[in-house]
Design a protein around this nucleic acid. Structure first.
Lengths: 274, 274
DNA sequence: ATAGGTATTGCATCTGACGCATCAATCTGC
DNA sequence: GCAGATTGATGCGTCAGATGCAATACCTAT
């Protein structure tokens, strides 16, 4: 069921993804040759395909180096894809969490299939800017963000979602199977926030809480992660801080805490104004 | 010279563009039929093409209404490429400002904690290259770049950020405390650009404006600085020039000026169909 | 001048995008 | 209940167009 057709479209899109890879970005874009080598395709095809992308504004090339990079059009599309209110309201809340409450790196993420995509990141002033996590995807089963995003999911849904996913990777305490994962989701559901202790990476702990929109469904997660030695003893406090910040963000998105919490699980009939 | 090849790729991309149209966004996405009608293509092709896009994450569909909309993967592409593009698109804009509009040194800077890091510099041809400012960090509270980078910040955030920072250093007019700093930020917010007059260094004046990306947040600042005797009498003009250049750069990063500016600060009542 | 690197283009081959058709699944109104 | 309308998915024969090879052109370095 994976790929019925290799599909020229899919091959073309792979070029865009390659141009957004860390390596390509670090080099200020890639030339036709390099791109072709990376994708295992002929230069001629890459050249022609990129010309179409360039005409449509999806890529553009540096006149000097002839290197292609992601073009303005993708940014325009992204602006449409982003839930503007979530992003706009999220910024100040992330900054406040970093500066006032926790002093550690804070992320805002959304669920993408069985993985987690980080859409906003805020680092403490002193931190070394190691990696720009915005735009990154990580697994959902061994991260606190993933746990928070799945907090309303039923057992059967979890099983279906992680049918083909390898467990036990990451940190030493990563859940070994769906059973263990669901247990921990239940724990998170009771607390209102999720805690992860060396599940994603050795020495890394994290806390996360779900963000809900006006329909009561989980649309994002707020999380903090840091080395265990720095965060471990105040992790419950961090969980509470994350949770109240996430609730605040939810309220700004129209969430009615009281009513919605009664409706969790029961599918809210979509009474969305057309 | 427009289209040598109609190219299936271009037709496919047109579907994405259609999904990003205001009309489609307003309706919470479009169905296959509507999309086909809009593009004048057969439903079967649209259905198949969208399946490929969906598999690659470029679009996603609402399980309820079956409507497709732009997916978060596009967001991920843009987030990863944003910095790269800021630098790439910034170069020409800086050069144009120097050569055509102002004839003074122009900088592009980003916020690092409570300080300002200059990432790009363009000097007028005749200028003696005194200091290479690229890579240099300066304080944020008494520079126009800092003022522009903090233009959206709330008072409480400013207070926390500058809790341990010494004020009153630099030029004779440097803000003496957080109070004064926030006042000047408010002034900058109203004007859309920041002006400093002998705050950083005696005899130095400057103007700066914020650069926003597709998320609407401030990610960089464009600024011009020069000796007071040379720039003072045209500083308002310089501010406007910097602001329109910064806006232009923002647009290239996917910033939708109208919508984003409405979202800043003002809490939009939640009646948006998600 | 040659050599090694780049990107583009001409052309024959054959994949896969295309349109027509059919089919399943909802919604309609009666 | 039925028939009609509207939705999206799919089977299949056809030919547009994506592909790969080779040739071309254009750099910079030696």
């Amino acid at each position: 069921m994976a790929d019925e057709h290799p599909s020229s479209l899919r091959r073309a899109l792979a070029l865009l993804d390659a141009l957004a890879s860390d390596d390509a970005v670090a080099h200020g874009g890639w030339g036709v040759n390099r791109l072709a080598a990376h994708e295992g395709r002929d230069q001629s095809q890459v050249s022609r395909t990129l010309r179409v992308f360039a005409d449509a504004g999806y890529v553009e090339r540096d006149p000097e180096s002839m290197a292609y990079r992601i073009g303005w059009h993708v940014f325009a599309l992204a602006a449409k894809a982003a839930d503007q209110r979530l992003i706009a309201a999220g910024g100040p809340i992330l900054r406040r969490l970093v500066e006032k409450d926790l002093g550690e790196r804070i992320h805002l993420s959304v669920l993408q299939g069985s993985e987690v995509l980080t859409v906003l990141t805020q680092s403490p002033p002193h931190a070394v800017q190691t990696v720009a996590w915005a735009g990154r995807m990580v697994s959902a089963h061994n991260t606190s963000s993933g746990r928070a995003l799945l907090i309303d999911h039923e057992r059967a849904e979890i099983e279906r979602m992680f049918a083909g996913v390898a467990f036990g990777v990451g940190g030493p305490n990563a859940p070994r199977d769906v059973e263990a994962l669901y247990e921990r989701i239940l724990t998170a559901r009771r607390a209102g926030y999720a805690i992860v202790d060396e599940e994603f990476e050795p020495g890394l702990v994290a806390a996360a809480a779900p963000v809900r929109d006006f329909r009561g469904g989980v649309i994002a997660a707020l999380n903090v992660s840091a080395p265990k030695f720095r965060l471990w003893n105040r992790l419950p406090f961090a969980g509470q801080a994350i949770k109240s910040a996430a609730d605040e963000l939810s309220v700004q998105l129209g969430w009615d805490g009281v009513r919605a919490s009664q409706l969790v699980g029961a599918h809210v009939p979509s009474e969305v104004p057309a």
